[in-house]
Amino acid sequence: MSPETPLTLLGGLSAADFLRDHWQRKPLLIRGAFPDFECPLAPEELAGLACEENIEARLVEERGPEGPWQVSHGPFDEATFARLPERDWTLLVQAVDHYVPEVAALLEPFTFLPRWRLDDIMVSYAPPGGSVGPHVDQYDVFLLQGRGSRRWQLGGKVADDAPILAGIDLRILETFEVEADQDWVLEPGDMLYLPPGWAHHGVSQSTDCMTFSVGFRAPSADEAVTSFADYLGEQLPASKRYGDAGMAPPADPAELDDAALARMRALILETLDDPAQMAQWFGRVMTQPKYADQLVPTETPTDPDDLVAALQEGEALVRSPGSRFAWRALDETRATLFADGDGVACALPLARTLASDAPLDAALLAFEEAPALLGALRDAGSLAWPDEFEEQ
């Protein structure tokens, strides 16, 4: 599909137009983004996920028994839901696409964005009046209405240091003023795109409401600098140090003079300015799994011969729902495949296939290195046979 092709998902805009005019710039309301939408998840199923161990879930009660805007963290139990009032609370469950294939299928139309930018699909359920208050997120998000209706009000882009309510476990804005013409009620299939830093407030209307939040992540500058420095530090030899050969005698031996600072600055900048190392680090950090415990390593190493035999008999490996893959070309024939925070060099077409949605079947055996690589990915928990996922 051409980036110039109009997309229903984007209200008739092409991907190129959306990325130029809206992505990280301004909101976009899309009526009927998913025509004839049928919600792929029932409220009871979402509540069931919130009761499971290792699934991140939160309950927000505007008037909780312990005070206003009370936040509780899962796993929950039936008694928790039984005590809740008929209105004014919200259940939020993260990474539902990792557990429900029908929810993961909602990601298929978003291929106009880099796959490695995707965070997850968070699903919220709320009876009438349910909300998490006016707030700001520091990531791009598409808010797809799945069930019932929700009123969204936008307050424009706000400063990073905008005052928030103290004493609660939510970053609710102290003041929120709705901008003109930025007040809508979304019905099932409607979607609202919000760039980072945009104040917004969503409230469930007269019936039960479910919203699917497709979020996209980006590391902050402080996270990136720290992470890249740590990665480089693991690669550098101990012999690479500050040097001052040929320096002039100091006017005062206790002074940190400009020349010394310039030498240290040059050492740091020369070390950091390494595009090849930057690419290797970036691939690893952007494919780190959101929940590492979702990857279940094998108890015994995979036998490459057994793997080849299984593929030749018609079986196919599948990617772990919690895994992240990406690739970067090294030259015309080789690439680094990044998988769940690790990187390995392999044939470029093999890397592209593994990082795509293509079947992982016997066709991969055309690459001599495929059995060993597939075995390593299975041992790490990034890949598995379908029945192994059913057992987990």
Rank of each mutant, 00 (worst) to 15 (best):
D331M: 09
A326E: 07
V318P: 00
S323D: 13
A276F: 09
A260D: 06
V225E: 06
L236W: 01
R284K: 12
A251L: 09
A335H: 02
L295Q: 07
K290N: 13
P249W: 13
A224Q: 13
Q235F: 08
D273G: 15
V296N: 03
S220C: 09
T298H: 10
Q288I: 08
R352E: 11
R284D: 06
A259M: 06
M286A: 13
A347G: 06
L317E: 01
G322V: 12
P297Y: 14
R241V: 05
T336F: 09
D222I: 15
D274I: 07
L337S: 05
C346I: 05
A309K: 09
A262M: 08
A245P: 04
E315C: 07
L256E: 00
A316P: 05
T302D: 01
A224C: 12
R334T: 08
G341V: 00
P301C: 12
L317T: 03
T302C: 00
L261S: 03
A335Y: 03
T333V: 08
K290F: 04
L295C: 13
L311F: 04
F216A: 11
L256S: 02
V308H: 00
D342Y: 02
D273Q: 12
M278Y: 07
V308F: 01
L307K: 02
D303K: 10
A335M: 05
R328F: 00
A254V: 10
A279E: 15
P321Y: 05
P250G: 12
A309P: 01
E255L: 14
E223M: 11
L267G: 06
D331I: 05
G341C: 02
A310M: 07
T287C: 02
A259W: 06
G341T: 00
M286W: 03
W327C: 02
A260I: 05
P237K: 06
P253L: 10
M278I: 12
R241T: 09
Q235E: 15
A347D: 05
Q288M: 10
A229L: 13
A309C: 03
L330H: 04
G343R: 01
R265Y: 06
P289Y: 03
V308A: 06
Q294E: 14
Q280G: 02
L267A: 01
L350Q: 04
R241H: 10
T287G: 09
T336M: 12
V214W: 04
A339N: 02
P275V: 00
V285Q: 10
A309L: 03
E234G: 12
L272V: 13
A218V: 02
A335G: 08
W327Q: 01
A248S: 11
G215D: 01
L256V: 05
A224P: 13
W281V: 07
M286R: 08
Q288N: 12
P321V: 01
A316W: 04
D331L: 11
G341H: 01
L330P: 05
W327F: 05
V344I: 10
P249R: 09
Q294L: 13
R352T: 07
M278A: 14
W327I: 00
D342I: 03
L337W: 03
E315A: 07
A339I: 03
V308L: 02
D340Y: 02
A351W: 06
R328K: 13
A351F: 00
L330M: 14
L354R: 05
P237W: 06
A224V: 14
G215K: 01
A229Q: 08
G283C: 08
